[in-house]
């Protein structure tokens, strides 16, 4: 059974979680059209360490997981805004 650790509720089976896509920072509002188009349409599919949104469905908790998409190892999970807490 695969496990993932919710920063609020603790370690739970992966079946309790929903993947929410890669966490990406939007460009500033005064960015160029090309920058905005790149943000909306382009994704980097190269494997590596990425920050991803995950959702713990029973509690309604959204959090960020730092995961190596090549090895599927999760380095850490944290709530948005609490990056430095772990």
């Amino acid at each position: 059974m695969k496990l993932l650790t919710c920063p609020v509720n603790g370690t739970r089976p992966l079946s309790e979680f929903v993947f929410g896509g890669e966490y990406r920072v939007a460009p500033p509002a005064d960015c160029t059209d090309a920058e905005w188009a790149a943000y909306v349409h382009n994704r980097s599919g190269a494997p590596g360490i990425k920050n991803e949104w995950w959702y713990h469905a029973p509690s309604g908790t959204w959090f960020i997981a730092e995961r190596n998409t090549l090895t599927d190892k999760v380095m850490r999970t944290y709530l948005k805004g609490q990056e430095g807490s772990k």
Partner: peptide, 12 residues
């Protein structure tokens, strides 16, 4: 308080 799933259903 535990928030988890029973038989696929979210429960408290």
């Amino acid at each position: 308080v535990i928030m988890t799933q029973f038989a696929g259903v979210s429960v408290v």
